[in-house]
């Protein structure tokens, strides 16, 4: 049986693959756990900051603050795409890239020029390959993004926005709804959405609202970026875990099939040998 040693080799190879995917699944599971904790930890701060900024916000302030500036016509926009440095995470990176392409097309359709800024090797590789112009790239954001990294990612865009070189900033990242559901989404990061509830008439403000806002707006922007980075890491690990789990399951199915094929071939060989012996004995009689 020529087939049986081939099948044996394939069984060995699939077993090795399954070992690797299972390990990656376990690694992703433990990273996902830590990343989820970080997403949870940042949520109270984000929502509290949003509510304070919202209550301080008043439409008439928007002229005083570069970060609240609402140009009548948007001519140029910055798009910040967050992807992962590594693949093998199912549709994680390609979903983000697709979302970014849709956003870029939509903006182009409205006659808005765009600068594309990309975090993560996967997004960079795709847009480089397509020959798309890329304004800036970052590949140094790891599994534990820090507030400082968030600041450095957004600082350039904030500067351009404040200086009036761009009129809007969008961020494309994954929303971490749960480990299983991490849809990509685009959000308008700048100008900062007020959503002002107002009603500050009886509040004591110390110092004046403008000065508080001057401090809080950059913090708010930094925090939104940080949150997106943290959610993206959690989403990546969740996607990788699912992808590796199904790869491990598939490897198991393939192994089962191959083992069956191998056993059948082996049994066939034995049966044939017995038949030959019986046939030989019968010929001697």
């Amino acid at each position: 049986m020529a087939g049986s040693s081939d099948v044996k080799r394939r069984i060995k190879s699939v077993e090795n693959t399954r070992q690797i995917t299972r390990t990656m699944e376990l690694v992703a599971t433990s990273k996902l756990k830590r990343a989820t904790d970080r997403v949870r930890a940042v949520a109270p701060y984000s929502s509290a900051l949003a509510s304070i900024v919202g209550s301080l916000y008043a439409p008439e302030l928007s002229e005083k603050f570069p970060l609240l500036r609402r140009p009548e016509k948007v001519e140029r926009a910055g798009v910040l795409l967050l992807t992962a440095n590594r693949g093998l995470a199912g549709g994680f990176n390609s979903n983000l890239i697709k979302e970014a392409r849709n956003l870029l097309e939509r903006l182009a359709g409205e006659g808005i020029e765009t600068d594309l800024h990309i975090v993560g090797k996967k997004g960079i590789a795709y847009f480089r390959f397509r020959g798309h112009a890329i304004a800036s790239t970052r590949i140094d954001i790891g599994d534990k993004p820090s507030m400082e990294e968030a600041e450095s990612v957004i600082a350039g865009l904030r500067g351009e926005f404040s200086a009036g070189q761009i009129d809007a900033v969008y961020i494309v990242s994954s929303e971490f709804k749960s480990a299983m559901s991490t849809p990509p989404r685009s959000m308008e990061l700048l100008p900062i959405q007020g959503g002002g509830s107002g009603g500050l008439d009886n509040f004591i403000l110390s110092p004046r609202a403008e000065i508080i806002l001057r401090k809080l707006l950059p913090a708010y922007l930094r925090n939104s970026t940080y949150r997106a980075l943290v959610e993206n890491v959690a989403a990546e690990q969740g996607a990788r875990r699912s992808a590796m789990k199904s790869a491990t399951d598939n490897a198991g199915d393939v192994l089962e099939y191959l083992t069956r094929t191998y056993n059948r071939a082996r049994q066939g060989k034995i049966t044939q040998e017995i038949a030959e012996i019986v046939g030989g004995a019968a010929a001697l009689e």
């Binding site: 304070i52 009886n202 509040f203 004591i204 110390s206 110092p207 000065i211 508080i212 401090k215």
Partner: peptide
């Protein structure tokens, strides 16, 4: 700044 129960509404840096 000291804050006791019943403090007036306030936002402070």
């Amino acid at each position: 700044v000291g804050i006791l129960p019943g403090h007036a509404p306030m936002i402070a840096l």
